[in-house]
Design a protein around this nucleic acid. Sequence first.
DNA 1: CTCACCACAGAGAGCGCTCTCTCCCTTCTC
DNA 2: GAGAAGGGAGAGAGCGCTCTCTGTGGTGAG
Lengths: 351, 351
Amino acid sequence: MSEGLPPSSGSSPTLEDVARAAGVSRATVSRVINGIRNVDPAIQETVRKAIAATGYVPNQAARSLVTRRTGAIALVVSGAGDESGEDPFPGQVFADPFFGRVAGGIVGFLRPRGVHPILMFAETAETRAQVLAYLRQGNADGAVLVSTNADDPLPKLLVEAGLPAVLFARPPEPLPISYVDVQHRAGAKLAADHLVARGCKRIATISGPMAVPASQDRLAGFRDAMAVHGQPYIPWVEGSFTYPSGEAAMERLLAEHPDIDGVFVANDVMAQAALVVLRHHGRRVPEDVAVVGFDDSSAALACRPPLTTIRHPVEDMAAEMARLLLAHIEEPERQATSVIFEPALVVRESA
Amino acid sequence: MSEGLPPSSGSSPTLEDVARAAGVSRATVSRVINGIRNVDPAIQETVRKAIAATGYVPNQAARSLVTRRTGAIALVVSGAGDESGEDPFPGQVFADPFFGRVAGGIVGFLRPRGVHPILMFAETAETRAQVLAYLRQGNADGAVLVSTNADDPLPKLLVEAGLPAVLFARPPEPLPISYVDVQHRAGAKLAADHLVARGCKRIATISGPMAVPASQDRLAGFRDAMAVHGQPYIPWVEGSFTYPSGEAAMERLLAEHPDIDGVFVANDVMAQAALVVLRHHGRRVPEDVAVVGFDDSSAALACRPPLTTIRHPVEDMAAEMARLLLAHIEEPERQATSVIFEPALVVRESA
DNA sequence: CTCACCACAGAGAGCGCTCTCTCCCTTCTC
DNA sequence: GAGAAGGGAGAGAGCGCTCTCTGTGGTGAG
């Protein structure tokens, strides 16, 4: 054993070195390290000792070369939309706590399985091509995609390239690709029911952009629920999920319907803007006007008063995305599936 | 050319296929794809066409096997500290916008260079070992480390393993490892000067934990600057960078020195807590007591009133970390270096 | 006693790429 | 016109691993 230590000059020990030290063949050491089928326990022990003695660590590149697996997946944040905006720092996107929650959920699921996410960012045609090339080169076994804008071409490109991928939300156009999403209609219904239960009589809504499926669903769900409560017509202004659009929408709503006493806003950021506008106009929240948001983002807590909102289980959804992706990688012929989560009402002070 | 297309059955084309299609050797195709030295322009053109025709994409695993480079680095978030706390979702850490800014800065620098970060999370001995093993297996060429607590053993482990790594802040114990940091003393001086310039006469401070080098520097810098302003003694309470510790510290400060009119708090989260405590005690901010924080985190904007604070250039620092790491990977014998950034005062309403 | 069978270990062929070494042919110099 | 010099292309040896195939010894059945 003392003469076992091979040259070990400079570079790290290889399977061959361990095999020599243990007095067995390379194949046997490989068997011990991996699936361990049909190896004599005594020899297993010898091999393990040799591994410890040599300080052997398997080389992932060599392994990947033959297994055609890397044990890594790409976590792609796609489409700040601005094709023009030359932003070298994708800071805003990553700084959004929503992204952090997604990352946390994914890492939480993947880590115990020895898989790690590679952080990528794609907002231009060039960077999208980069992501695609990266996956084709076999740097990662698949991709989990979080799109920030609706008409992101990446999902389609991934499908066409036959690369395993899972989306965070239902794609605008039907695509044979798995995704997770939240029951937007059910969430909107929670908001409607809550406003009605509070006693609101003249209720309006600020929706997200109609190009986004989630916006459509939230609006439709809200209308349907209100219709059940006997209110078939709901004043409505379309926003674009941004703060300024929320301001403008609330201003218009107040101008056209000064007597409203309840508003459902399709995301928290616009709701935050709406609160400021309402205060500007001397409306007390929730006494004069009750406001319900959507997302339960960090903006909800930063609001004055804190925002009543609809929460999606982002971490669970992210973990599910990872689970679906691994399943697709394992079994490439598997059909695309969707997993839809149930949202919950978080009551704070704004409604 | 039309007969060029090789079987291409199932799997993707290899260098060999391209070489056959172009009528040259594998080596020549490799030359064209990489450094392009000494290749006839006409042949280059032929090879390029063959590459396009076959849809060839180099296999990263095969390449890594011989070059011993992966083109990936690990972005390690280390030490939520809680060795016991069995938290499967490292959500809180990633959800912190600070982390997002770091990630953004790193991706911004690495992407143009074709390098990608692998997201890792290490808070227990087991996960630290995982990170180390991961790097040793050659999954990544080095690591960029953001520690959240002072006595993180990972930096030392990385140094001992001889793995290229760069830290986000100066390690508590001296270590031959590169890091970026901010001039904490200069930042504290900015706060001191601002409070004095405002006319504050009875100034106190809430520091971070003394185990953290940054806390020591901020406190020392603040004291030194105040001494220059003729105030050698500054009432001081130690916090631990958390919200509750900020509350407790402010309560104590008010109890012991009810007449204070200015406070420098060593981070924004504690400052946020301090603001709430001050309001509870009927103190107006900034009229009765002016408050300056540190970090310019998202908490600073969520404060009422918005917090005057010290901002570090997090994105720039993160980019510099990435730059240093790539330099170390390129040139392993290179000495450890540090790059220290200048902080800036952000004046809002609290002081 | 012979044969089939099983459990196990070794041999060796690649995976797809890079890179050194070698060779060839052109060009320049004296 | 011969030899040196050098640019440009091919041959082939690995990089470290997995996995199939083959070989061997021991066991139970016929």
